[in-house]
C-alpha cells in the first residue's frame, strides 16, 4: 500500500474506483518470484510431478494395478521396471506417478477449503467484532486446543478411512489457524482511518469489506496458507500411512509406504521410495512458500 496520499505534480492521479496499489503489489510479488532461482527450481519440479500425475496414463510405463506374484519386490535399477516393483509385483514407477494424483489432491483440497472457510470466519469475526467475534473465536480456540496431528487422527479414526473423511478432518485442523490470522488482520483494518473514512462517506458494510478488508487480509492469509500445503501433504500421507486415509489398492504415496513397510527387511530401497516423493513435494512447497513470503516482504 505504497500509494501516496497526495498525487505529486506531474504524476497521474489514480483513476477513481480502481485500486492500482493492490494490483501493482501483486505484480511486484510475481516479478520477484520469477527472479528467485530457488522458487523457480521448485516450481519446475512440482510442475513435472503435477503434469506426470495428470497425464499418468500416457507417462506411466506399466499398469499401476496389475499384480504378479512372480515379479514381487524387484529392486530398483531393473531394465524393465526402473524403480522396481512392490510387494504385489506392481510397477513402482507407475504407482508413484499415479500416486501423485491422490497425494497432491489430498494436500491441496483441505488447505483450499480451510483457507476459504477460515478466512471467511476470521473476516466476519474481525470486522463485526463484539459478541459475534467472541462466539466464533472461542469455538476456534477450542479446536486450537488440540495438537494438530492428534485432532486429524482422532476425527479420521472415528469417521473411518476414505478420501472425503480425510479431507474433512484435515480441513477442520487447518481452519483455526487460518481464521486466527484473518481475524487479527481484519480487526486491525476495522480501526484504520480509511475504513472510518469509507464508513463516513456512507459506504455499505459489504462494500467496505470487499474493497478494504478483503484485499488487505488476502496477503497474510495466502502467505500462511502456502506454508500449510506442505504440512497438509505430509499429514494426509501420514493418515494413509496409518491406514486412516486412502484405502487399497489405490496408488497413494502414504499408503504405498504403509504396505511396503512390511518388506523393509527384504527390500529396504523399494520400501523407502514413496517417502522420497512425499519429501520432495513437501520440500518444494516449503521453499516456494518461503520465496513467496520474502517476495511479499515490502521492506526488502
Amino acid at each position: 500500500m505504497s500509494q501516496p496520499a497526495i498525487a505529486l505534480a506531474g504524476t497521474k492521479a489514480p483513476a477513481k474506483g480502481k485500486r492500482p496499489a493492490t494490483r501493482s503489489f501483486w505484480r511486484n510479488v510475481g516479478r520477484r518470484l520469477l527472479h528467485d532461482p530457488v522458487s523457480m527450481a521448485c516450481l519446475t519440479i512440482l510442475l513435472l510431478i503435477v503434469l506426470a500425475a495428470i497425464f499418468a496414463p500416457y507417462v506411466a510405463p506399466h499398469d499401476p494395478y496389475r499384480t504378479s506374484m512372480a515379479r514381487r519386490l524387484i529392486p530398483p535399477g531393473d531394465a524393465r521396471y526402473w524403480l522396481g516393483t512392490d510387494e504385489l509385483g506392481r510397477d513402482l514407477l507407475s504407482r508413484l506417478i499415479y500416486g501423485g494424483r491422490l497425494s497432491l489432491f489430498m494436500g491441496f483440497a483441505p488447505v483450499l477449503l480451510a483457507t476459504m472457510i477460515g478466512g471467511l470466519l476470521g473476516v466476519i469475526a474481525g470486522y463485526v467484532g463484539g459478541a459475534i467475534n467472541m462466539l466464533i473465536m472461542r469455538v476456534i480456540d477450542v479446536f486450537y486446543a488440540f495438537p494438530s496431528v492428534l485432532l486429524a487422527v482422532a476425527i479420521s479414526g472415528v469417521l473411518g478411512a476414505g478420501i472425503g473423511n480425510t479431507i474433512f478432518s484435515l480441513t477442520l485442523v487447518f481452519i483455526p489457524p487460518v481464521a486466527r490470522v484473518a481475524e487479527s488482520v481484519a480487526t486491525q483494518m476495522r480501526n484504520q482511518d480509511f475504513v472510518e473514512a469509507a464508513r463516513a462517506t456512507g459506504a455499505a458494510n459489504w462494500r467496505i469489506v470487499l474493497a478494504h478488508v478483503v484485499p488487505n487480509v488476502t496477503g497474510p492469509i495466502l502467505s500462511y496458507a502456502s506454508s500449510l500445503i506442505s504440512v497438509s501433504i505430509v499429514l494426509a500421507a501420514g493418515l494413509s500411512f496409518l491406514g486412516l486415509g486412502i484405502t487399497p489398492p489405490e496408488p497413494e504415496w502414504g499408503l504405498m509406504l504403509n504396505t511396503l513397510r512390511q518388506s523393509i527387511y527384504v527390500a529396504p530401497l523399494n520400501a523407502v521410495l514413496p517417502g522420497v516423493m512425499i519429501f520432495i513435494t513437501s520440500m518444494c512447497f516449503n521453499l516456494m512458500s518461503d520465496g513467496l513470503r520474502s517476495a511479499m516482504d515490502v521492506k526488502q
Partner: peptide, 18 residues
C-alpha cells in the same frame, strides 16, 4: 532446517531403521 520442517518424519523413521 527447512529440510527438517519438510521431511515426513514417519518416513525418516523408516530410513533410520533401515
Amino acid at each position: 532446517s527447512i529440510t527438517g520442517v519438510s521431511i515426513p518424519h514417519y518416513w525418516l523413521g523408516m530410513v533410520l531403521m533401515v
